[in-house]
Nucleic acid binder design. Structure first.
Lengths: 345, 345
DNA sequence: TAAATTAGTGCAAACGCTTGCAAATTCATC
DNA sequence: GATGAATTTGCAAGCGTTTGCACTAATTTA
């Protein structure tokens, strides 16, 4: 192995020499530990900046048993979804001097376990897991060895799992109620990918709202999608072809709603005049669509923030009890919903 | 510090004991090093799986001088752009048993340097840098200490910097020529964020094509945008308000094109009948727009792949000379372009 | 003023691994 | 059946930190 050591050398020992103290003192200064005389501290600080000292994370982690790195397990990065969450995670991590190690599982999910193990083996101090495929395998192992982790937008297998989720059910309810209150009675839903709990909860909210307002649940008005734009397009075409088409559509994601818009446009159907449309997520783009999309906002960045904070607390004060969090969703009223046309109501 | 050692214990020594060999032998097995008797190897392998051994990356890196981790420096994660690139990076990294460490710089760009230093200090074996803001500062330092890195979608400060970029100029040329060949003469462009080299190159391609076909360059037809959808919307409205409006628009990004579509729709202008539109990037969404967007495909995933491969080569065979890469862009013909209306041509 | 604290510092032993070197074993070869 | 080369293994010295323990110096306290 013709590997040159890449180390650019300046270690804690060099600093110690330069400052004329022992290396343990330097370590104490670096870590803000107890008992260092102000003079000494100053001397060491001086030496550090003079030499451009930069702690070696590897060594620190090996010796100290912690790495100041958080692992993040994610399905996929090509949607804005995760990006927003990461923005929140990042914010908290930066403020706390932690680094982020990313792993996307969009390939073989069998490798998830190996990765998690590696992480838990010293590479990371804690794990943030977004929407895992089938976490049972490694979650058990993490729990056994008491390794800190928090799940995002996914419920745990075990009650003891800490999770941060959005109030999807309430969001679905709010969206549907909004349509009902506008006067709609034939309200369709295009669901998300039903493997995901979020999709199921949004549907549950829809059903609950219908029930509360004594509107009969009609299976024909439920189109099973997968959160994507194409499924919105197809779903809308399917629904609008019904003998008795809906006057409003609740799209389980903004992407779906965009597909619906395309379909409506293709058929010369005006939104919101002829058809009301409400989305879910409030991705940035929904504010610039024409018409601007009424939707349910899901606080993704806040989810990232909260999850990270919980994880850090878990790491730093293991004795304190943490609890799962469900963040409120918010109805964002814009232009895509209106009362049904009198002749259609 | 009430930190329990999170190590779940099984080290190379445990494996050695279990297998009845010395720990150095185990190390050699793990690393596929020379000179291990097949029997011994088998015994060790057995012991490893029995004990569930998992190498401790920290220790390995400390001792061996390499970490099998690649650092990735990125501006922002909330667009698909980086996601696609990461997909490619990930592919190569996984195949080569490397891990990804992510750093997004959307906050204080002053910290970029600190991060890069930390990485270069042993945390990572190499660095992939996507679209850095102002890399001069740390690039110099990296170069000095001979630390491997590759720039993506950005040109180096120094000729010796290795970069992977797309042929933006050629793409801009191809897009414009396509419109010209359809018969358009008044062709507008909405540019990207001109701080970025890619945006400037696309514009250059546009100008070059006009020049080659002896069409006069008209500043009034150049709207300076920033790659975003809103700028496309405003740009289109501005351009279409001109006394003599364009019959075709070259949008420097698909997002811009979507904004143009919105604007056109708002004005009752049909694409491509009344106005031809071509985008750039070929984000997945552009295939599902109505009309489907003609665009110039930029191979983001391939860019990630190539950059990663170069970086790995750089690390593994430092003696081999690597060269920068410019990847071809590709004109994707779909529905949003057509010859100009006879009365407008 | 002596004894007991407390603050400040240094030494050395890990942490889990890689790797150069030397010792031991094998295997041809004569 | 010995000789030398090639193969296989083990030992020990780090890699750059953190941290418990011991020690000294500065404060209190009685």
């Amino acid at each position: 192995m013709a590997r040159k050591k890449s180390s650019n050398g300046v270690t804690i020992i060099d600093v110690a020499e330069e400052a004329g103290v022992s290396y343990s003192t330097v370590s104490r200064v670096v870590n803000n530990k107890s008992y260092v005389k102000p003079d000494t501290r100053a001397k060491v600080m001086g030496a550090m900046t003079r030499l451009g000292y930069q702690a070696n994370l590897q060594a620190r982690s090996l010796a100290g048993g912690r790495s100041n790195v958080i692992g993040l397990l994610v399905v996929d990065l090509t949607t804005q979804y995760v990006g927003e969450i990461i923005r929140g995670i990042d914010e908290i991590l930066t403020a706390n001097q932690y680094e982020l190690m990313l792993y996307t599982t969009h390939r073989r999910k069998t490798k998830e376990s190996a990765y998690v193990n590696m992480m838990a083996r010293g590479l990371a101090d804690g794990l943030l897991i977004v929407l895992p495929r089938d976490p049972e395998a490694y979650l058990t192992s993490l729990r056994e060895r008491d390794f800190p982790y928090v799940l995002i937008d996914q419920f745990g297998i075990d009650d003891s799992d800490l999770t941060v989720t959005a109030a999807n059910r309430e969001g679905g309810y709010a969206a549907t109620r909004h349509l009902i209150e506008l006067g709609h009675r034939r309200i369709a839903i295009i669901t998300g990918w039903m493997d995901m709990i979020a999709a199921r909860h949004r549907l549950e909210g829809y059903r609950a709202a219908l029930a509360d307002y004594h509107i009969e649940y009609d299976e024909a008005l439920v189109y099973e999608g997968d959160f994507s734009q194409p499924c919105g397009f197809h779903g809308a075409n399917h629904l609008l072809d019904l003998a008795s088409p809906p006057t409003a559509i609740f799209a389980s994601s903004d992407l779906i709603a965009m597909g619906v818009m395309d379909a409506a446009r293709g058929r010369g159907i005006k939104i919101p005049t002829d058809l009301s449309l409400i989305g879910f997520d409030d991705i940035p783009m929904s504010a610039v669509l024409i018409p601007q999309l009424t939707t349910v906002r899901q606080p993704l960045d806040e989810m990232g923030r909260r999850a990270t904070q919980i994880l850090l607390d878990l790491i730093q004060k293991p004795e304190a009890k943490q609890t799962s969090v469900v963040l409120a969703t918010e109805l964002i009223l814009r232009e895509s919903t209106a009362p049904p046309r009198p002749d259609m109501a």
